[in-house]
Amino acid sequence: MGVRESQKQETRRKVLDAARDLFNEIGFDETTIRAVAERAGVSVGSVFTTFSSKAHLLSQVMEDRVDLLFHELQRVVPHLRGSTADRLCSIFAIHYEFETRRDKLFLAHVAAAFSPNLEEGVIPYGQNARFRGMILETLQSGVSRGDVCNSIDLDLALTSLMAAYGWNYRLAAQRRATAQEMSDLMDRQILLLFNGLKPR
């Protein structure tokens, strides 16, 4: 990597760290690009050479966090035992625990996903392909293990699980619910769905 390239990478890292902290401390709406530049110790111009907008910045911050989360999951998932429903309960619980560590940041991400003018290059929450892939794989392995009915539309099951998962964050937004409370509700929803996913 050339000097220029490595400088660019470092600026990018500094900007993303500053943005992540500011979004979580004061919220997305209150954070300005100027404040991000100031905290990162770079010029406003250099923020804009890397990121097209504040929404783009948020989206990148969240993508980086997904890397971190996947690192955690990759250590845990191979050790999961029990039924497919149990495994899914664990995977979703890990997500809730992870995201509530920086709850304000995550809620900013969710709120941005409902913004009427979503820009290009912004990945709304719940659309992360890796996460969806992981849940789908777990369902598929359930079919081969024999505790998920093989005639079930797995995409539909995936969509329903993801919808419940994402929607449960409302409890955090509106009642400051803990990760534990959201996981408890998710467990009950998973059991409800799995009653219909059982082989018959």
């Binding site: 539909l156 099951a157 969509t159 329903s160 769905l193 996913l197």
Partner: peptide, 14 residues
């Protein structure tokens, strides 16, 4: 159409 399938999935266990 999607909702009809989702309703069926949710009710399947009941």
């Amino acid at each position: 159409t999607l909702l009809r399938d989702q309703v069926a999935l949710i009710l399947a266990g009941l």
